[in-house]
Design a protein around this nucleic acid. Structure first.
Lengths: 333, 333
DNA sequence: AAACCCTTTGTAAGCGCTTACATTTTAGTG
DNA sequence: CACTAAAATGTAAGCGCTTACAAAGGGTTT
């Protein structure tokens, strides 16, 4: 693999000149530029990004931490972030934290050791303090889908409370009064926010928010099934079931069908996230759009603007408001 | 950020010694090791991976090219590869090629410029020649889900012909005789292989493989819908529909339902790939398991064994045989 | 033709590590 | 206790680039 030195020799110029035509920030006469370019082409020269990074202290890569590498939610996120950055010649280094404190921590350390120019974190397990410390360091960091007090400028979040509110409101507007809820793990901020919004909607509508109508799941499909069983067994008069994410909604649909209930005739179901497969479900799932792609794009934009001084004139937003996606799993009571 | 030099000063030893305790390949006395480790801890030292790579010509990272960053198929692949490599302290750098020759090419060049120690490629658009040249270079390369003549040791593939055969056979065994087929783009090897297997199964069963029963889709959901419309309109006596992947099967299911057909009572449907959401579909999709995870794991294992000299005693397989996953969308005629 | 300035190019010092080789220390031996 | 081999440590030369600074051209102006 040819080095810059060989190119400079072949072109009859100095190392510095070759470097200059590569980076294009200093003036080089057309004649020498041509010579260098010819030499590069002839040698099939490809700059060594590692050496460039070491010398320039710039890697042109952004670290992205997600919880998992699979699943539509993170797929969408990775995809959006990558697209947005690639446009400007920046690259993404992706790592998975698996919602485990140590593994998230290790993943972040890895990204730091790779000398990423900035970090975009979807961190669920590490502490607020850790994130705060990280943001205070000279490595630029943004946090996705999590609000950390004092780090507002670095956080990009969805109004989960509002989303929970909207889901309940949609059901209420269809005349439902006995509403079940399958929550995510309550220690997770997004789960508890969604639940809070749910309760607020009920209260505002004059419906008592009964705690025993709430089943705490784990955001996975199977707990949707469990929740469905539990609720239907104990509260057969429930006519609408709201789930804190689409996976659990899918599980609930399966369980409902197995119990001989038709959706939405016998039971309405509302999900949350609007992941890709929610439209593959039958009936197509009415859900709350979680604008994860907007989050990703905004985070990328923040990095481009603040780290790479890219001229971007679109505004940077930090709070995203979810919306109801009306499909076929919610109907009049 | 502390450097190795500061550590060596703090510990009262030379640079080389610090490097030695980091890499642990040369003997260092316990006493000095302790001193160095203390100094490291005190300074919060973190080696600069970039500098390490430049000096050692080793990046400990493997490049992974996928077609998309989203979708369960690639999600599964990325996840498996990452897990397998992480166990041995190796990292994955993921890029997307978007099934476009230039973009795949650029992505590979990017991985090369990052000086990955090896490349795992799910390349669909670049030419066989390009891959062959690549494999001949001194950068170790393996190819996933694509067979390139002369590169057998570097290829990890699924027997798509067999898969297509199994799908048709499954339908035939249930008594179906009028069988529609929605193919992927025929220029893609996997699509044409699956189709070939399909035809072979029909022929062996004494059923004429009618070309007009075959609709060429593009592997996306919408073309499943189109295919369904087309086939049902022209050949209403079709009782079973086999789709070359699950996305198209899902589209076909939707279209069938809209046309008032119940599945599988009126029409049986078989998919291919067994992606995650195929079990969310209703009815749960009978499909062909595409062992993409095994491919990923095997590719990772190959790299560990051949590039990093890891002691792995499991065998390396190159050909994976798909299997029928029986669920609820295929029934007796 | 000397003096000046602007543009283009070259020189060389690092970036933070690894590692071959040289040197010192330690332990073992008679 | 001197002598030697083995073990531990140090020295310094890179890895392939970037970039501050120096030097050299090339016009103008007087």
């Amino acid at each position: 693999m040819a080095t810059i030195y060989e190119v400079s020799e072949a072109a009859g110029v100095s190392l510095a000149t070759v470097s200059r035509v590569m980076n294009g920030n200093t003036k080089v006469s057309d004649r020498t530029r041509k010579k260098v370019e010819t030499a590069m082409a002839k040698l099939g020269y490809q700059p060594n990004a590692i050496a460039q990074s070491l010398a320039s202290n710039r890697t042109n890569s952004v670290g992205l931490l997600v919880s998992e590498l699979h699943g539509s939610y993170f797929g969408d996120l990775m995809s959006t972030v990558e697209q947005a950055l690639k446009q400007y010649g920046k690259h993404v280094i992706i790592t998975a934290g698996h919602v485990d404190e140590k593994r998230e921590h290790d993943a972040i350390e890895f990204l730091k050791s790779r000398r990423c120019d900035a970090l975009i974190l979807h961190a669920e397990a590490v502490s607020d303090e850790y994130l705060t410390t990280l943001c205070k360091s000279d490595l630029p960091v943004v946090v996705i889908n999590r609000k950390v007090d004092g780090l507002d400028d670095h956080c990009f979040v969805v109004d989960n409370e509002k989303g929970g509110y909207l889901a309940a409101q949609a059901a209420i507007q269809q005349g439902h009064k006995e509403i079940g809820y399958i929550s995510g793990p309550k220690f997770k901020k997004d789960a508890s926010d969604r639940l809070a919004g749910h309760k607020r909607a009920l209260t505002e509508a004059g419906i008592e928010a009964k705690d025993d109508h709430i089943f705490e799941g784990d955001f996975h499909e199977s707990s949707g099934q469990e929740g469905m069983h539990y609720l239907k067994q104990h509260f057969p008069d429930i006519t609408a079931l709201i789930c804190a994410n689409d996976e659990m909604a899918s599980g609930a649909m399966t369980a409902a069908r197995e119990a001989g209930l038709e959706i939405p005739q016998h039971l309405s179901i509302v999900g949350f996230d609007n992941v890709l497969f929610s439209r593959y479900l039958y009936p197509k799932l009415t859900t709350i759009n979680n604008p994860i792609q907007s989050l990703g794009e905004m985070a990328a934009r923040w990095v481009l603007k603040n780290v790479y001084d890219t001229k971007i004139n679109q505004a940077i937003e930090h709070l995203f408001v979810p919306e109801v996606v009306e499909r076929h799993s919610l109907s009049k009571r």
